[in-house]
Computed example of a mutant assay.
Amino acid sequence: MIKVLVIDDSPLIRMVLTEILQQAGDIEVVGVAEDPYEAREKIKTLHPDVLTLDVEMPKMDGISFLKNLMRLRPMPVIMVSTLTKQGSPVTLEALEIGAVDFIAKPSVNVASQLQSYAELLYQKIRVAHKAKLRPFKPHDDKDVTVVNEFKAFSSQAVLAIGASTGGTEAIKEVLIRMPTHCPPIVVTQHIPPVFSTSFALRMDKTCAITVKEAVDGDVLKPGFAYIAPGDQHLKVVRRGTQLHCLLDNGELVNRHKPAVDVLFHSLVESVGKHTSAVLLTGMGSDGARGLLALREVGAHTFAQDEATSVVWGMPRAAFEMNAAQALVPLPKVCQQLLKSAARN
Protein backbone atom coordinates (compact mmCIF):
# COMPACT_ATOMS: atom_id res chain seq x y z
CA MET A 1 0.00 0.00 0.00
CA ILE A 2 1.15 3.53 -0.80
CA LYS A 3 0.72 5.63 2.35
CA VAL A 4 -0.51 9.18 1.68
CA LEU A 5 -0.77 12.23 3.92
CA VAL A 6 -3.29 14.84 2.69
CA ILE A 7 -2.36 18.44 3.59
CA ASP A 8 -5.03 21.10 2.93
CA ASP A 9 -6.67 23.81 5.02
CA SER A 10 -10.13 23.04 3.56
CA PRO A 11 -12.03 20.32 5.48
CA LEU A 12 -14.10 19.64 2.35
CA ILE A 13 -11.04 19.12 0.11
CA ARG A 14 -9.41 16.91 2.76
CA MET A 15 -12.57 14.79 2.91
CA VAL A 16 -12.98 14.53 -0.87
CA LEU A 17 -9.33 13.63 -1.50
CA THR A 18 -9.43 11.06 1.30
CA GLU A 19 -12.61 9.43 -0.04
CA ILE A 20 -11.20 9.30 -3.58
CA LEU A 21 -7.83 7.86 -2.56
CA GLN A 22 -9.29 5.22 -0.23
CA GLN A 23 -11.07 3.67 -3.24
CA ALA A 24 -7.86 3.05 -5.20
CA GLY A 25 -7.13 -0.33 -3.64
CA ASP A 26 -3.37 0.18 -3.41
CA ILE A 27 -3.41 3.61 -1.71
CA GLU A 28 -4.08 4.31 1.97
CA VAL A 29 -4.64 7.77 3.46
CA VAL A 30 -2.77 7.45 6.75
CA GLY A 31 -3.62 10.96 7.91
CA VAL A 32 -4.69 14.51 7.10
CA ALA A 33 -3.29 17.88 8.17
CA GLU A 34 -4.75 21.37 7.89
CA ASP A 35 -1.45 23.25 7.95
CA PRO A 36 2.30 22.58 7.54
CA TYR A 37 2.97 22.53 11.30
CA GLU A 38 0.48 19.72 11.82
CA ALA A 39 1.85 18.04 8.69
CA ARG A 40 5.40 18.16 10.04
CA GLU A 41 4.39 16.25 13.18
CA LYS A 42 2.34 13.69 11.27
CA ILE A 43 5.20 13.02 8.84
CA LYS A 44 7.36 12.09 11.86
CA THR A 45 4.78 9.71 13.33
CA LEU A 46 2.99 8.29 10.26
CA HIS A 47 5.91 8.00 7.81
CA PRO A 48 3.87 8.58 4.62
CA ASP A 49 5.22 7.63 1.19
CA VAL A 50 3.61 10.54 -0.67
CA LEU A 51 2.16 13.93 0.31
CA THR A 52 -0.59 15.89 -1.39
CA LEU A 53 0.08 19.56 -0.62
CA ASP A 54 -2.10 22.64 -0.94
CA VAL A 55 -0.38 25.82 -2.13
CA GLU A 56 -2.18 28.40 -0.01
CA MET A 57 -2.54 27.58 3.69
CA PRO A 58 -2.56 29.41 7.04
CA LYS A 59 0.50 29.70 9.31
CA MET A 60 2.91 28.69 6.49
CA ASP A 61 2.34 28.61 2.73
CA GLY A 62 2.93 25.44 0.73
CA ILE A 63 6.04 26.78 -1.01
CA SER A 64 7.86 27.60 2.24
CA PHE A 65 6.93 24.20 3.66
CA LEU A 66 8.08 22.44 0.48
CA LYS A 67 11.48 24.19 0.57
CA ASN A 68 12.04 23.03 4.15
CA LEU A 69 10.83 19.53 3.37
CA MET A 70 12.99 19.03 0.26
CA ARG A 71 16.04 20.39 2.07
CA LEU A 72 15.67 18.35 5.27
CA ARG A 73 13.63 15.28 4.34
CA PRO A 74 12.99 14.95 0.57
CA MET A 75 9.85 12.95 -0.22
CA PRO A 76 7.40 12.70 -3.12
CA VAL A 77 4.92 15.58 -3.21
CA ILE A 78 1.90 16.19 -5.47
CA MET A 79 0.76 19.83 -5.39
CA VAL A 80 -3.02 20.24 -5.29
CA SER A 81 -3.32 23.52 -7.13
CA THR A 82 -5.85 26.00 -8.43
CA LEU A 83 -5.30 25.85 -12.20
CA THR A 84 -5.52 29.60 -12.80
CA LYS A 85 -3.27 32.41 -13.99
CA GLN A 86 -2.67 33.24 -10.34
CA GLY A 87 -1.98 29.65 -9.34
CA SER A 88 0.26 28.56 -12.19
CA PRO A 89 3.47 30.53 -11.40
CA VAL A 90 3.40 29.30 -7.78
CA THR A 91 2.85 25.71 -8.88
CA LEU A 92 5.71 25.94 -11.39
CA GLU A 93 7.89 27.25 -8.55
CA ALA A 94 6.89 24.17 -6.53
CA LEU A 95 8.06 21.90 -9.36
CA GLU A 96 11.34 23.83 -9.41
CA ILE A 97 11.77 23.20 -5.69
CA GLY A 98 11.19 19.48 -6.09
CA ALA A 99 7.48 18.60 -6.20
CA VAL A 100 7.01 15.64 -8.56
CA ASP A 101 3.74 16.78 -10.14
CA PHE A 102 0.54 18.75 -9.62
CA ILE A 103 -3.19 18.27 -10.03
CA ALA A 104 -6.17 20.61 -9.96
CA LYS A 105 -8.33 20.94 -6.89
CA PRO A 106 -11.27 18.53 -7.29
CA SER A 107 -14.54 20.05 -8.54
CA VAL A 108 -16.65 18.64 -5.73
CA ASN A 109 -19.90 19.91 -7.27
CA VAL A 110 -19.38 18.03 -10.58
CA ALA A 111 -19.93 14.38 -9.72
CA SER A 112 -19.64 13.22 -13.33
CA GLN A 113 -16.02 14.40 -13.48
CA LEU A 114 -14.88 12.80 -10.23
CA GLN A 115 -14.18 9.37 -11.75
CA SER A 116 -11.78 10.70 -14.41
CA TYR A 117 -10.24 12.96 -11.75
CA ALA A 118 -9.78 9.96 -9.46
CA GLU A 119 -7.99 7.92 -12.13
CA LEU A 120 -5.63 10.81 -12.85
CA LEU A 121 -4.92 11.31 -9.14
CA TYR A 122 -4.20 7.58 -8.65
CA GLN A 123 -1.79 7.62 -11.57
CA LYS A 124 0.07 10.65 -10.26
CA ILE A 125 0.34 9.19 -6.74
CA ARG A 126 1.72 5.89 -8.10
CA VAL A 127 4.25 7.65 -10.31
CA ALA A 128 5.32 10.00 -7.49
CA HIS A 129 5.88 7.02 -5.21
CA LYS A 130 8.54 5.68 -7.60
CA ALA A 131 9.95 9.02 -8.79
CA LYS A 132 13.57 10.04 -8.29
CA LEU A 133 13.86 12.92 -5.85
CA ARG A 134 16.46 15.64 -5.61
CA PRO A 135 17.18 17.69 -2.47
CA PHE A 136 16.37 21.38 -2.76
CA LYS A 137 19.49 23.47 -3.29
CA PRO A 138 18.98 27.19 -3.91
CA HIS A 139 21.00 28.29 -6.94
CA ASP A 140 21.33 31.21 -9.29
CA ASP A 141 20.32 30.40 -12.87
CA LYS A 142 22.80 33.06 -14.04
CA ASP A 143 25.63 30.77 -12.96
CA VAL A 144 24.73 28.17 -15.61
CA THR A 145 27.23 28.05 -18.48
CA VAL A 146 25.81 28.46 -21.98
CA VAL A 147 27.16 25.94 -24.51
CA ASN A 148 29.18 28.14 -26.87
CA GLU A 149 31.62 25.62 -28.34
CA PHE A 150 29.72 25.34 -31.65
CA LYS A 151 30.06 28.47 -33.78
CA ALA A 152 27.70 27.62 -36.64
CA PHE A 153 24.77 25.30 -37.33
CA SER A 154 23.11 23.88 -40.42
CA SER A 155 20.56 26.37 -41.73
CA GLN A 156 18.11 23.47 -42.09
CA ALA A 157 18.48 22.16 -38.52
CA VAL A 158 15.60 22.08 -36.05
CA LEU A 159 15.85 20.89 -32.44
CA ALA A 160 12.85 19.13 -30.86
CA ILE A 161 12.09 18.27 -27.23
CA GLY A 162 9.30 16.15 -25.75
CA ALA A 163 8.58 15.66 -22.03
CA SER A 164 5.96 14.93 -19.38
CA THR A 165 6.27 14.36 -15.59
CA GLY A 166 9.39 16.18 -14.37
CA GLY A 167 9.66 17.85 -17.72
CA THR A 168 9.33 21.52 -16.81
CA GLU A 169 12.62 21.41 -14.91
CA ALA A 170 14.29 19.08 -17.41
CA ILE A 171 13.37 21.38 -20.31
CA LYS A 172 14.74 24.33 -18.34
CA GLU A 173 18.04 22.47 -17.87
CA VAL A 174 18.32 22.15 -21.66
CA LEU A 175 17.07 25.58 -22.74
CA ILE A 176 19.08 27.55 -20.16
CA ARG A 177 22.30 26.28 -21.79
CA MET A 178 21.30 27.19 -25.35
CA PRO A 179 23.30 29.95 -27.10
CA THR A 180 21.43 32.75 -28.87
CA HIS A 181 22.55 31.51 -32.32
CA CYS A 182 21.15 27.98 -31.79
CA PRO A 183 18.78 26.41 -34.35
CA PRO A 184 15.01 26.86 -33.83
CA ILE A 185 13.64 24.69 -31.00
CA VAL A 186 10.14 23.21 -30.77
CA VAL A 187 8.89 21.82 -27.46
CA THR A 188 5.91 19.70 -26.41
CA GLN A 189 5.40 19.30 -22.66
CA HIS A 190 2.26 17.70 -21.22
CA ILE A 191 0.84 20.68 -19.34
CA PRO A 192 -2.54 22.46 -18.87
CA PRO A 193 -3.31 25.56 -21.02
CA VAL A 194 -2.78 28.35 -18.48
CA PHE A 195 0.39 26.66 -17.27
CA SER A 196 1.99 26.54 -20.72
CA THR A 197 1.72 30.33 -20.94
CA SER A 198 3.30 30.80 -17.49
CA PHE A 199 5.96 28.21 -18.28
CA ALA A 200 6.97 29.95 -21.52
CA LEU A 201 7.20 33.32 -19.73
CA ARG A 202 9.25 31.77 -16.93
CA MET A 203 11.67 30.19 -19.42
CA ASP A 204 11.99 33.41 -21.40
CA LYS A 205 13.07 35.31 -18.28
CA THR A 206 15.56 32.57 -17.37
CA CYS A 207 17.20 31.75 -20.72
CA ALA A 208 19.53 33.63 -23.08
CA ILE A 209 17.38 32.54 -26.04
CA THR A 210 13.83 33.81 -26.66
CA VAL A 211 11.18 31.40 -25.40
CA LYS A 212 7.53 31.83 -26.34
CA GLU A 213 4.29 29.94 -26.41
CA ALA A 214 3.78 28.88 -30.02
CA VAL A 215 1.23 30.81 -32.06
CA ASP A 216 -0.31 29.39 -35.21
CA GLY A 217 1.76 30.60 -38.18
CA ASP A 218 4.92 31.47 -36.22
CA VAL A 219 7.98 31.31 -38.50
CA LEU A 220 10.75 29.21 -36.93
CA LYS A 221 13.82 31.35 -36.29
CA PRO A 222 17.27 30.66 -34.81
CA GLY A 223 17.60 31.57 -31.15
CA PHE A 224 13.89 30.94 -30.49
CA ALA A 225 12.12 28.12 -28.64
CA TYR A 226 8.42 27.53 -29.31
CA ILE A 227 6.40 25.76 -26.60
CA ALA A 228 3.15 23.97 -27.47
CA PRO A 229 0.04 25.55 -25.87
CA GLY A 230 -1.47 23.32 -23.21
CA ASP A 231 -4.63 22.56 -25.17
CA GLN A 232 -3.40 22.18 -28.76
CA HIS A 233 -1.03 19.92 -30.66
CA LEU A 234 2.06 21.63 -32.10
CA LYS A 235 3.19 20.67 -35.61
CA VAL A 236 5.95 22.01 -37.84
CA VAL A 237 5.03 22.51 -41.50
CA ARG A 238 7.00 23.75 -44.48
CA ARG A 239 5.59 26.60 -46.60
CA GLY A 240 7.96 27.42 -49.43
CA THR A 241 11.39 27.94 -47.92
CA GLN A 242 10.13 28.64 -44.40
CA LEU A 243 9.11 26.42 -41.50
CA HIS A 244 6.01 27.41 -39.54
CA CYS A 245 4.27 26.38 -36.32
CA LEU A 246 0.84 24.87 -36.94
CA LEU A 247 -1.55 24.46 -34.03
CA ASP A 248 -4.00 21.58 -34.25
CA ASN A 249 -7.08 21.29 -32.04
CA GLY A 250 -7.64 17.63 -32.95
CA GLU A 251 -8.31 14.59 -30.78
CA LEU A 252 -6.14 13.46 -27.89
CA VAL A 253 -3.17 11.33 -28.97
CA ASN A 254 -1.80 8.87 -26.39
CA ARG A 255 -4.35 10.50 -24.03
CA HIS A 256 -2.61 13.87 -24.41
CA LYS A 257 -3.06 17.20 -26.13
CA PRO A 258 -0.47 18.42 -26.88
CA ALA A 259 1.16 15.09 -27.72
CA VAL A 260 4.86 14.60 -28.41
CA ASP A 261 4.15 12.04 -31.13
CA VAL A 262 2.20 14.64 -33.12
CA LEU A 263 5.16 17.04 -33.05
CA PHE A 264 7.75 14.39 -33.91
CA HIS A 265 5.71 12.91 -36.77
CA SER A 266 5.22 16.40 -38.26
CA LEU A 267 9.01 16.85 -38.25
CA VAL A 268 9.44 13.61 -40.22
CA GLU A 269 7.57 15.31 -43.07
CA SER A 270 8.83 18.89 -42.78
CA VAL A 271 12.44 18.63 -41.56
CA GLY A 272 13.36 14.94 -41.82
CA LYS A 273 17.03 14.06 -41.34
CA HIS A 274 17.89 17.62 -40.30
CA THR A 275 15.96 17.14 -37.02
CA SER A 276 17.75 16.59 -33.70
CA ALA A 277 15.18 15.31 -31.20
CA VAL A 278 15.23 14.21 -27.57
CA LEU A 279 12.65 12.56 -25.34
CA LEU A 280 12.97 13.65 -21.72
CA THR A 281 11.50 12.45 -18.41
CA GLY A 282 7.85 11.45 -18.31
CA MET A 283 5.41 8.63 -17.65
CA GLY A 284 3.87 6.58 -20.45
CA SER A 285 5.19 6.17 -23.97
CA ASP A 286 4.13 9.33 -25.84
CA GLY A 287 6.84 10.40 -28.28
CA ALA A 288 8.57 7.02 -28.61
CA ARG A 289 6.96 6.09 -31.95
CA GLY A 290 7.53 9.58 -33.30
CA LEU A 291 11.18 9.42 -32.28
CA LEU A 292 11.50 6.06 -34.04
CA ALA A 293 9.97 7.52 -37.21
CA LEU A 294 12.51 10.36 -37.04
CA ARG A 295 15.40 7.92 -36.62
CA GLU A 296 14.19 5.92 -39.62
CA VAL A 297 14.46 9.00 -41.88
CA GLY A 298 18.00 9.73 -40.68
CA ALA A 299 17.38 12.29 -37.92
CA HIS A 300 19.51 12.47 -34.77
CA THR A 301 17.51 10.95 -31.89
CA PHE A 302 18.23 10.82 -28.16
CA ALA A 303 16.53 9.95 -24.89
CA GLN A 304 17.30 11.04 -21.34
CA ASP A 305 19.03 8.37 -19.27
CA GLU A 306 17.39 6.66 -16.32
CA ALA A 307 19.74 8.07 -13.69
CA THR A 308 18.76 11.71 -14.34
CA SER A 309 15.06 11.17 -15.16
CA VAL A 310 12.40 11.89 -12.53
CA VAL A 311 10.27 9.24 -14.27
CA TRP A 312 11.96 6.95 -16.82
CA GLY A 313 8.81 6.08 -18.74
CA MET A 314 8.80 7.87 -22.10
CA PRO A 315 12.61 7.69 -22.54
CA ARG A 316 12.54 4.01 -21.62
CA ALA A 317 9.82 3.28 -24.19
CA ALA A 318 11.96 4.97 -26.85
CA PHE A 319 15.06 3.06 -25.76
CA GLU A 320 13.25 -0.29 -25.79
CA MET A 321 11.98 0.19 -29.35
CA ASN A 322 15.43 1.32 -30.51
CA ALA A 323 14.16 4.82 -31.32
CA ALA A 324 17.04 6.61 -29.59
CA GLN A 325 20.59 6.50 -30.92
CA ALA A 326 21.90 7.23 -27.42
CA LEU A 327 20.84 7.68 -23.80
CA VAL A 328 22.09 11.02 -22.54
CA PRO A 329 22.31 12.41 -18.96
CA LEU A 330 20.27 15.60 -18.60
CA PRO A 331 23.26 17.98 -18.12
CA LYS A 332 24.64 16.80 -21.49
CA VAL A 333 21.42 16.96 -23.54
CA CYS A 334 21.91 20.54 -24.74
CA GLN A 335 25.45 19.85 -25.90
CA GLN A 336 24.34 16.62 -27.64
CA LEU A 337 21.54 18.37 -29.55
CA LEU A 338 23.83 21.21 -30.62
CA LYS A 339 26.63 18.86 -31.61
CA SER A 340 24.32 16.92 -33.92
CA ALA A 341 23.12 20.15 -35.54
CA ALA A 342 26.57 21.79 -35.83
CA ARG A 343 27.96 22.62 -39.27
CA ASN A 344 31.11 20.57 -39.84
Rank of each mutant, 00 (worst) to 15 (best):
I227S: 00
P74I: 10
K105L: 11
A259P: 03
V211E: 03
V253P: 01
K130R: 15
D61P: 03
M178K: 03
N344P: 15
L159E: 01
Y117T: 08
R14E: 02
T301L: 03
E28G: 01
Q115A: 12
F264N: 01
E320M: 15
M75G: 04
L292S: 06
A118V: 05
V16G: 01
L294V: 13
D218V: 10
T275C: 12
G162E: 04
G217P: 08
K85D: 13
Q242H: 09
S309A: 13
K132F: 06
L69R: 00
I176D: 01
F150W: 14
F102A: 04
L12D: 11
M70N: 03
L263K: 01
L243T: 02
N344H: 13
G162C: 10
R343F: 11
H244V: 14
V90G: 02
I176R: 07
V211Q: 01
F302S: 01
V127W: 01
R134H: 13
H256S: 13
G250C: 10
A157K: 03
L280E: 04
I13R: 03
A170T: 05
F136D: 03
L294T: 07
K85G: 08
G223N: 08
K142W: 00
M57N: 05
L46F: 12
M60H: 05
G25F: 05
R126M: 11
V50G: 02
D216Y: 13
G223E: 10
K142L: 11
H129I: 03
D305P: 00
E169Q: 15
K151S: 14
L330Q: 04
R238G: 03
E93A: 10
A317V: 10
K59W: 06
S276L: 04
V30E: 06
A288T: 00
L159C: 07
A259N: 04
L292K: 12
S88M: 12
A163E: 08
V100F: 07
V311C: 09
A225L: 08
I227A: 00
D218E: 12
A163Q: 02
E56L: 13
P74A: 09
E19D: 15
N109K: 13
V30S: 09
N249A: 15
D204W: 07
V80Y: 01
G284Q: 03
K332D: 09
I43A: 07
F102R: 02
L263T: 00
P329M: 11
G313I: 07
L51G: 05
D26H: 13
N249K: 14
F136L: 05
I27M: 14
L280Y: 00
Q86L: 14
G250A: 12
V90S: 08
V260P: 00
G250Y: 08
N249R: 14
L263I: 11
A170R: 02
Q242W: 04
R177F: 06
T82C: 05
K42N: 07
